[in-house]
């Protein structure tokens, strides 16, 4: 195909069917901030674009079963304007809001960030640390999968032909929980994470960490959920010794590359630094959320 075709179905099943029929060059479109850039630069060949924004379930934020359901194509700006979501999952929201600029925020979605499958995607470590899941629609119906299972390598996803993400689900939030996301970029905005770190934790009444999840971006082909790093926090009050253990565990898990954006050595060190700092912020937030 030497030209672009565009459809905007209103039902998930129509979208799945169109994607399946469109074959290799058919792609879902949420905000288009990756897809359109890649088409224009010639990195992707022209083909069928299936816009998801007219599908009601794919847009908006809903509180369901104690958790949150976020339509796949919901832009970052909508996340930042949702008060309850921001109180429950400040780390997820801050991660999504780091994407691009004000203009990009008007379009860019977390599902697009996830399915673009960049190891440096900013919202993904926060979502993985949050234990988020997604609802996937395909020719065979619906299934649910952990966010961390979608990307399988740079630019590659586990989605089968015709499948797309319809919703992202954030689980119910116990009291005294907090999350945080930090990234390192050489500038202050409009940049790609050299390293990203998301931490999500829950405290007991004494301020002891009972549950902790630590995810790292841009230090491996996909976002890493580092079990040892989470374990380093559990049973502690995120004191200096625990943070040092977390730092070491984060560094040990790294398997980065050296490229124009950072060396292996630098990325590894920074993964430890950011995990530590994000844990401190998440801990502070958890203490405040009685």
């Amino acid at each position: 195909m030497s030209h672009v075709e565009f459809i905007a179905p209103t039902k998930p099943e129509q979208a799945a069917a169109a994607l399946l029929a469109g074959g290799a060059h058919a792609r879902p479109l949420s905000g288009g901030t990756d897809l359109l850039v890649q088409l224009r630069s010639g990195r992707l060949p022209p083909g069928l674009i299936v816009d998801l924004k007219r599908i009601p379930e794919a847009i908006g934020i809903r509180q369901e079963g104690g958790g949150f359901v976020i339509g796949a194509a919901t832009p970052g700006a909508a996340l930042s304007e949702h008060r309850a979501l921001g109180l429950a999952w400040p780390g997820v929201v801050e991660a999504a809001n780091l994407i691009g600029s004000t203009q990009v925020q008007g379009r860019a979605s977390m599902a697009g960030n996830l399915c673009n499958a960049s190891p440096a995607a900013d919202s993904v470590p926060a979502l993985v640390a949050a234990r988020a899941t997604c609802v996937i629609v395909g020719p065979g119906g619906r299934r649910t999968a952990p966010v961390g299972s979608i990307a399988i390598g740079p630019g590659r996803t586990s989605l089968a032909p015709g499948e797309f993400v319809l919703e992202i689900h954030l689980p119910p939030r116990p009291a005294r929980s907090g999350d945080a996301y930090l990234r390192l970029i050489p500038r202050t905005e409009m940049d790609i994470a050299v390293v990203g770190a998301g931490v999500n934790l829950t405290l007991d009444g004494d301020g002891v960490v009972t549950e902790a999840h630590v995810a790292l971006g841009a230090v491996a082909p996909t976002v890493l959920l580092v079990a040892d790093a989470g374990a380093a926090l559990i049973g502690t009050k995120a004191d200096e010794a625990a943070l040092a253990a977390l730092d070491a565990a984060a560094r040990a898990a790294c398997n980065p590359i050296s490229d124009k954006r950072g060396t292996i050595e630098y990325r590894t060190k920074i993964a430890g630094v950011l995990a530590r700092r994000a844990a401190t912020i998440a801990y502070g937030r958890a203490e405040k959320r009685a």
């Binding site: 050489p186 500038r187 202050t188 905005e189 409009m190 940049d191 790609i192 124009k260 954006r261």
Partner: peptide, 16 residues
Amino acid sequence: MENPGFLDYRVPVASD
């Protein structure tokens, strides 16, 4: 050239 674009050729942005 590995960075022929404003993403990886980093001119300062206003917030810098």
